[in-house]
């Protein structure tokens, strides 16, 4: 004998409930079993919109070098332009430029702020080396062009990368107007001077960039460059009117890189 009508309806009803309701239905039938196993760490720094202000009045070249060193050593960023000593290998300037891995780097005013330069500028601007990084745009072109959603925007404004998903198509590099993304043309591991064992490296064939130190924020620490900058870089919540970032933006004149492109960058510079 098969199942009777009543039994059939009961099973059909339950399966429909499971099918339609998914986890919520599971909770109804077996409450408490699918509890949240994953939570964010207490003490993590959170914000509605992270932003950064670089104070170029305090940022010297040696200080910028310190910030870059702090960032690149914390995140196992390889120095592809300086390969292990081998007299057989010579690297052209073109290759050096092509292989350079940039999370944090410096460049001149003309290169950093094209369109805003003039023939007769204040003299110090010609000499200044601006500290550049991913701008964590409100409207990031890299996110729009990524075919695998490896690059995505977090609700707190950080343009985050999921290296597991990156297929190395380099659309994002073409999309980013700031040159903030670098491609691993070769296995990066031999080019990392000193490995940070608590942070992963990358593989050949993925793109990488600055992530606003989201792994440090999660531990309640400020980004590595901010810590190394001796107050020349300020990082904070843009939606909080009392934050240091907002105070600086309120009292100082700041510029951003290529705002005319409509990406709404969130790294500000005080000149």
């Amino acid at each position: 004998m098969g199942i009777n009508r009543r039994e059939f309806l009961r099973i059909a009803g339950l399966s429909t409930l499971m099918g339609l309701g998914g986890k919520a239905a599971w909770e109804l039938v077996f409450p408490g079993q699918a509890l949240a196993q994953y939570t964010s760490k207490p003490g993590a720094l959170v914000a509605k919109r992270w932003a950064m202000v670089v104070d170029m009045r305090k940022m010297t070249e040696s200080l910028a070098a310190k910030c870059i060193e702090a960032c690149h050593s914390a995140h196992n960023v390889p120095n592809m332009a300086a390969p292990p000593v081998d007299p057989q290998v010579t690297i052209s300037d073109n290759q050096k430029n092509r292989w350079q891995m940039k999370w944090l780097w410096t460049d001149s005013f003309e290169h950093a702020f094209p369109g805003q330069e003039q023939e007769h500028m204040q003299e110090r601007l010609h000499k200044m080396q601006f500290l550049l990084l991913c701008n964590h745009c409100e409207n990031p072109p890299c996110v729009r062009v990524c075919p695998t959603k490896a690059t995505f925007r977090r609700p707190d404004g950080i343009v985050m990368m999921d290296m597991h998903r990156c297929i190395g198509c380099r659309y994002c590099m073409a999309g980013c107007p700031y040159g903030a993304r670098s491609f691993n043309w070769r296995d990066p591991r031999p080019f990392i001077a000193k490995l940070n064992e608590t942070y992963p490296t990358r593989e050949k064939g993925v793109v990488e960039k600055c992530l606003f130190c989201e792994e440090r924020l999660a531990k309640g620490q400020m980004p590595a460059c901010v810590e190394a900058s001796q107050g020349a870089i300020v990082f904070g919540d843009l939606t909080d009117p009392k934050s240091k970032v907002r105070e600086l933006l309120r009292t100082q004149y700041t510029i951003r890189r290529k705002p005319q492109l409509g990406t709404n960058p969130h790294v500000f510079y005080i000149i």
């Binding site: 509890l35 994953y38 939570t39 964010s40 760490k41 993590a44 977090r154 985050m160 597991h164 999660a218």
Partner: peptide, 14 residues
């Protein structure tokens, strides 16, 4: 773990 940490920022597992 990977998805929760990278996509949702949930770094603590019970």
């Amino acid at each position: 773990w990977r998805d929760e940490v990278v996509r949702n920022g949930n770094r603590e597992f019970t």
